[in-house]
Design a protein around this nucleic acid. Structure first.
Length: 561
RNA sequence: UGGCCCAUGGUGUAAUGGUAACACUCCGGUUUUUGGUACCGUCAUUCUAGGUUCGAGUCCUAGUGGGCCAACCA
């Protein structure tokens, strides 16, 4: 119902128009075509949501196709990681394909092009070819090998395939137009010699097809109706169509390439090459470092598939340059985590509180609601005693009325517990407050229904009983880059903008219910933020990642003074 | 001394020739045993100049600004 009121993006409009003209819905087919040379990032997530979203919308199959035409860069590890990420996002592909499945067909078609006088073997160096290519403002000149006979081309190409030549000695080129205003049409390379083992075809081949020769033909083989890619491929479209013209059977569906703007996220880089650099130079600990904008990094950070999909839906798809503020991504993860995470208490920067009128040695277990957003999450018991931790930032000797927290002579409620009053505090020799002495109102227990418990005090603090507290390693993350757009600054390398303080590791003190928390589990630490258990956690040493903080209006009040 | 793409609040998207809409951010407020959540409110002469039209964010022309194109990468 609500679907009908939602406006279409320009890709959907193109499809709707095609459906009105010469396509039926059963012709529709899409594909997500990553090269397995790295891990997927948030930009890919957008493309995944676009293609698979279209599949869902039109009940059309979507292939997962690995564009594996360059064995120098590709690895099985990346294939596995990509499959895991797409699945984790919640999408199911129709069939798993590889461009390498089509190497023989591509080769046969190339032979046809040669026989047709549309392709030739060039035996120059890449430098010589680059010189002849011209510039965007000057036409290129023809290769001296451009008019080799069909017979010579055929035998040379076969010799290339058989491994008789060294890398760089010969290439197969399409014979198009060295004067085209489109640089890509100036006799583009179709095949190069590469004596490399491929992660799937091993050493079966020593010539490998280039992207342009492979992609459109693969779409055609799979009968993909709409081949969607980013805007930097727009100049490739003319070549995509030219290659298709050489092989298409008019009775079969002819794929269309259409382009959309890649999504850029502020304060990070969205480029596999640059992300690989961060990994190689050990700026981060790996592709799934929680600071990385990779899908695996976001997953480890505690992001949910729903958060990422909602984000992708919200930012939409268009053709103009963009820089999406990370705050929008953070909004979506908070929105989802607020609904699904149980609330717990943990103190990250502890200050000891002693309740002087609490019976010596006594402890009691208080009932605590797991989520105000979801009653079905039930409740748990939290231990209370006469010695607790609260956050250092939650106590001041003196403060104005804007400070809703604990101050000398002031009262505050301990969440799920009692109202306490600060009576005095002690300091170390440097003047740092190391302990606060309080009294509590025994009749003010949360949920007891007494008049005292119904009293309204300004602030509510989270806390942990010192005796029961579980220490845990807490990893706090900040933006990886200090600049909102680190890789678009003229004369500056993006590496210059790396935030040196993007990771802070501290020890936090958690309520004991967290003792058995398992890797991947997510929680809201009340009044602080959302956290998830890292995969490196162990029973004797819990490790939590901070996903994102709660919105903090107190921080804003403080900033303003 | 070229070709192509793009231009709507701080950000991202919508309006399909007919009242500039939605979300985020920011700012202000209500509720609250999380300074969270929820809810309410403020924030735009649609890059500029011409033109077509009863009517232009939308169509046309020019300008301005931004982006892409010269890897045996994808």
């Amino acid at each position: 119902m609500s679907e009908t009121s939602k406006s279409l993006n320009f890709i959907e409009q193109i499809i709707e128009e095609d459906l009105e003209k010469d396509y039926s819905q059963s012709n529709l087919r899409f594909r997500f075509p990553p090269e397995p040379n790295g891990y997927l990032h948030i930009g890919h997530a957008s493309s995944i949501c676009l293609n698979f979203g279209l599949g869902l919308r039109y009940k059309a199959p979507v292939n997962l196709r690995f564009d594996d035409t360059n064995p120098a860069k590709e690895e099985q590890e990346f294939v596995d990681a990509i499959k895991k990420d797409v699945s984790w996002l919640g999408f199911n592909w129709d069939t798993e394909r590889y461009a390498s499945d089509y190497f023989q067909q591509l080769y046969d078609w190339a032979v046809l092009l040669i026989k047709d006088g549309k392709a030739y073997v060039d035996s120059q160096s890449s430098e010589e070819m680059a010189e002849q290519k011209g510039t965007p403002t000057e036409p290129g000149v023809n290769s001296p090998y451009r008019n080799r006979s069909v017979e010579e081309n055929l035998s040379l190409f076969e010799a290339m395939k058989k491994g008789e030549f060294k890398e760089g000695s010969h290439v197969l080129r399409a014979k198009i137009d060295m004067a085209s205003t489109n640089m890509l049409m100036r006799d583009p390379i179709m095949y190069r010699v590469l004596h490399r083992a491929h992660h799937r075809t091993n050493t079966d081949w020593c010539i490998y097809p280039m992207y342009d020769w492979t992609h459109g033909e693969s779409d055609y083989i799979e009968q993909v109706s709409h081949s969607l890619c980013t805007l930097e491929f727009l100049p490739h479209r003319e070549l995509y169509d030219w290659f298709l013209d050489q092989v298409v059977d008019p009775k079969k569906l002819r794929p269309k390439q259409r382009e959309f703007a890649r999504r850029n996220l502020s304060h990070t880089v969205v480029s596999k090459r640059k992300l690989a650099q961060l990994v190689e130079q050990k700026v981060v600990k790996g592709w799934d470092d929680p600071r990385m904008p990779t899908i695996s990094g976001l997953r480890r950070r505690g992001y949910t598939p729903d958060a990422i999909r909602n984000f992708a839906d919200t930012i939409g798809i268009a053709k103009r340059d963009n820089l999406i503020d990370v705050s929008l991504l953070e909004f979506h993860v908070r929105e989802d985590l607020n609904k699904i995470t149980p609330r717990v208490m943990g103190v990250l920067d502890p200050l000891k509180v002693v309740i002087t009128n609490y019976p010596e040695g006594k402890e009691e277990w208080l009932e605590a609601e797991n989520s105000p957003e979801d009653e079905s999450l039930g409740s748990r018991q939290v231990p209370f005693s006469g010695e607790l931790y609260i956050e250092k930032a939650d106590f001041k000797e003196q403060a104005n009325k804007k400070f809703f927290r604990l101050k000398l002579g002031g009262e505050v409620r301990l969440k799920n517990g009692y109202i306490i009053k600060a009576e005095s505090c002690t300091k170390d020799t440097d003047g740092n407050i190391i302990e606060v002495q309080c009294t509590y109102d025994p009749k003010s227990k949360s949920g007891s229904g007494t008049p005292e418990s119904l009293r309204r005090v300004k602030g509510t603090l989270h806390w942990v009983s010192t005796k029961h507290a579980v220490p845990a390693e807490i990893r706090l993350y900040d933006r990886l880059f200090t600049h909102e757009s680190p890789d678009t600054q003229k004369d500056k390398d993006f590496m210059e903008f790396i935030n040196p303080n993007s990771l802070e590791v501290i020890t936090g003190y958690l309520e004991p219910s967290l003792k058995d928390a398992k890797a991947g589990e997510r929680f809201q630490f009340q009044r602080i933020g959302y956290f998830c258990v890292d995969r490196e956690t162990a029973p004797e040493k819990l490790i939590f990642n901070k996903t994102v903080g709660l919105r903090d209006s107190w921080a804003k009040i403080q900033q303003k003074g």
